[in-house]
Write a protein that binds this DNA or RNA. Structure first.
Lengths: 341, 341
DNA sequence: CTGTTAGCGCCTTCAT
DNA sequence: ATGAAGGCGCTAACAG
């Protein structure tokens, strides 16, 4: 058993209350006793038991991070990773810690059980929650709606509940922007990758494209495979670039662009001479380490993570919140992978 | 205020103890009361307060993860990421959660303060600790030695304390193995990247090479730059491959091999025709998405993370531990990036 | 099988 | 400025 506050008090010849006051700076205490207590704390390497403290204060200074992932891990893809970095930074700065919450498969199978994130917050293990990347299925989950309404939660991504705290970038807009850039360079047949997760945005993007870029033939392809990505991409390129005659490809993330480039190299298709490649990047300069350097829309995922954490902590600590929902602006970075035709 | 066990007890018309017994399955309770309690739990969406429970049980079912990083984030590099995935998996399976501990810079500047990982364990926030990637400086930290001796800790990497729990792969051996493979393919001048962190292994590797592969000229280069890696690598290739005539390059991680390949492409150096490339990979098939597919030594980082977590939990839960230190075997995977000369 | 009781370690009145 | 006392919510020992 570690030393308790009473041990410290006894050794310093004071009461437990005095020790508490000194440790928390709650009230003035004489210099003499302060010294004695410091010595005793040092002696025992005393650290206040957080269960007891939490029981009293009803706060753990821990923040939960919940990034549900269908099949793959939350430590995958630079979008997630950059967000995690940003979150970690903000939390560390404000002296909170980060608890990773990963749902058991069991929950998704039989929806009866309480989801873990809710459990954690009800159990007071965490003071607040950062969420991202919910699939549509989850957004309709009553447990989810409840938590957003009743507890301190920031959702990163398209806002789910009209009052909820939220941080986002305009997915549809920057994707259309990417297509517009290619269009202005003369491209009229574009292969556009979109993930299952963003299916719900697809229609809006396509509509906007039809209105604004009338001559554009857009081939939206939903392409899952993280697993055997190389082979899959190879056949997609053969189908859309070689056979259909697409002159440009729009990738969703740099990792995808990388595999795309490898596939092109294998097929002896030169980038950008024969096909242009454009991508989204979530980490600064991610596109610059490829060859050729890939032009990309930079989405500041790390800043979004950090901002979400700040917002949550401000809310928890009762600070004034200027905006419930904060938008982050992507920035286009021109490099060497696209050309005018 | 959330409902407490007494609220549930009152509504079910039983005592708090009975509720506790039902929730924990600690003792037999009549079917009737069980039903009533279940209803009340449902009614309040009751979840036991973890502060109170922890205070009683002195356990939080949380495990700390501490990957100190000089400058860069713990969410960087597939070695870390794969370990995190493995850890996450094991912990989830056994119903523990994962707390990320990141040291404040402050600690490393002025070594006075207690490091956070020690603080957390003394405060009982976590039941145990998983550590990895300590720089040499940290290994000599008295706070560190103390924790390894006194608390439930598993270190992932070369063992630090003779009695500590530990999980590792033989860094020196598999690196020499990589060089041996190139040697057997006729390579006699090899550019070998080694990180600052592994400086202490360098000598051992070089000694073994001198003994075993006498004709080999090894150019060990310590190359930090994650930042402007591309440019840096370009000049290293020009220096060692073009000028010195190295016929093979050994990369430390796939990310590095990727940049290497991009640099070679830029310099019009064909791989493997003009230079062979070999690497270490920490995620299965990581090397296969590059072009050409890179031959690599697969180090099972994910399994190591999972194994470390298992070991720690077994220890915490008082299970018999067969081996204090577990070795993981890397596996060489031949692909297309090296050739006989 | 069930209820009563007594802490776990801390913080916060209240009284001095 | 300081100490005594009570209670945060839960569980385990004891008594019935």
């Amino acid at each position: 058993m570690e030393a308790s506050i009473r041990d410290v008090a006894r050794r310093a010849g004071v009461s437990a209350a005095t020790v508490s006051r000194i440790l928390n700076g709650t009230a003035a205490v004489s210099e003499k006793k302060t010294q004695a207590v410091r010595e005793a704390v040092e002696f025992y390497s005393y650290e206040p038991n957080q269960f007891a403290r939490g029981l009293k204060k009803q706060s753990s200074r821990m923040i939960g991070v919940y990034f549900p992932t269908a099949g793959t891990s939350m430590f995958e893809g630079s979008y997630n990773l950059e967000m995690l970095k940003g979150i970690e930074k903000s939390l560390r700065y404000r002296d909170y810690s980060m608890v990773l919450i990963s749902e058991t498969e069991e929950y998704w199978r039989r929806k009866k059980k309480t989801p873990k994130y809710l459990e954690y917050i009800r159990q007071k293990r965490i003071d607040g929650l950062l969420m991202s990347g919910l699939v549509n299925q989850a957004r309709d989950d009553p447990a989810f709606r409840q938590i957003v309404e009743e507890y301190p939660v920031v959702y990163i991504g398209k806002r789910v509940h009209k009052d909820g705290l939220n941080v986002y970038a305009q997915f549809e807009q920057y994707n259309v922007q990417l297509l517009r850039i290619l269009y202005e360079q003369g491209h009229r047949k574009i292969l556009f990758f979109i993930s299952e997760m963003h299916r719900n945005h697809q229609e809006a993007i396509e509509r906007q494209v039809r209105e604004e870029l009338p001559e554009l033939e857009l081939y939206s392809v939903s392409f899952q495979g993280f697993a055997d990505a190389g082979r899959e991409l190879l056949s997609l390129i053969e189908k859309y670039v070689v056979a259909q005659g697409c002159t440009a490809v729009c990738a969703r993330v740099i990792y995808e662009a990388q595999i795309l480039l490898a596939a092109c190299a294998q097929l002896q298709i030169k980038v950008p001479e024969q096909v242009s490649v454009i991508s989204v990047e979530h980490s600064r300069n991610e596109g610059a380490v490829l060859y050729p350097r890939v032009s990309a829309m930079y989405v500041p995922a790390q800043a979004m993570g950090a901002g979400a954490a700040e917002l949550l902590l401000d809310y928890i600590e009762g600070k004034e919140i200027a905006e419930n929902s904060i938008e982050y602006e992507p920035e286009y970075i021109e490099r060497d992978s696209i050309r005018r035709i």
